Amino acid sequence: MHTQLFGPVKQWGFVVRDIDAAMQCWVEQLGVGPWWGYRNVPLKSRFEGVDADIVIDVALSYQNGVQIELIQQKNDAISPYRAFYDTPHAQMLHQVAYMVPDLDAAVAQGKAAGLAERGMLSNAYSRYYYLDSPALAGLVVELMQADPAFVADYERCAAEAAVWDGSNPYRLLG
């Protein structure tokens, strides 16, 4: 039996040009919501060996227990997301993400399996690593630390989304 390297997929992440329009589409046309998130999130980025400060808006919803993430980068600094803005797409599937119990060990496992470290984002609370392979054709693998508070918040929001009645669809904090 083949073992999954990082466990089940926990998130599909999309980079978007307009996070409000993207959330509205997901709510009104696809029935996905509610959306939690934050505006003007400062992050440290290391991408292709270059360090930069980036600012993003991020919105999170859930479908059948899997998180859907929308990301809009607010500045022009180099980052794992920046190349998207040079394309004509309104939104693009950027990443598939996994929660891992030991982030550094998972990065090492990914490298041993042939994935290359492409970048890393961090803030005061977390680090997020991005790995890729030419075979993934632009899709990256995001690894997130599965600390208890992060997992509890994920599970709480996924449970609420499973019974969402359509009210109060946008819950982004400024």
Rank of each mutant, 00 (worst) to 15 (best):
M144C: 06
N75L: 08
D153R: 11
I68M: 14
A105Q: 13
N64W: 08
H89V: 05
V66G: 08
G33R: 04
S122V: 05
C157Y: 13
G65F: 09
Y98I: 04
L131F: 08
S61M: 14
H89E: 15
T3L: 09
N64I: 05
Y81M: 01
Y129L: 01
D86I: 05
I71D: 00
R39S: 03
V151T: 10
S133Y: 07
T87I: 04
S61L: 14
E48V: 08
L60W: 04
L139C: 15
E155C: 09
W35T: 04
Y81G: 02
D132S: 11
L139Q: 08
F6H: 05
S61A: 15
S79D: 07
P34I: 05
F47S: 14
Q145Y: 15
Y81Q: 03
G31V: 00
F150G: 02
A137D: 14
M1C: 04
Y98A: 01
W26R: 06
F150N: 12
A112G: 11
K111W: 06
V41C: 05
N64S: 15
L136Q: 12
I19K: 10
E48P: 04
A21H: 01
V32I: 15
T87M: 10
Y129I: 01
E142I: 02
G119I: 07
S133D: 15
G31D: 02
A124L: 09
G119S: 02
V100Y: 01
E69W: 00
V107G: 00
M92I: 10
V58G: 02
Q109T: 11
L43N: 06
D102T: 12
L143M: 01
P134R: 08
V58K: 08
K10I: 06
H94V: 07
M92G: 13
I56D: 00
A59L: 03
P101R: 02
A159D: 15
A22S: 15
V96C: 06
L143I: 01
C157E: 12
P134I: 12
A116T: 15
M99W: 13
Y38Q: 14
W26S: 07
Q145M: 13
Y129C: 01
A158M: 05
G13R: 03
I78W: 07
G37C: 02
D132P: 04
V151D: 10
G138P: 15
S122K: 08
V55S: 00
Q73E: 01
V41R: 12
Y125F: 11
C25F: 13
E48K: 14
T87S: 13
Y154G: 04
V163F: 07
C25R: 14
E160V: 02
R156C: 02
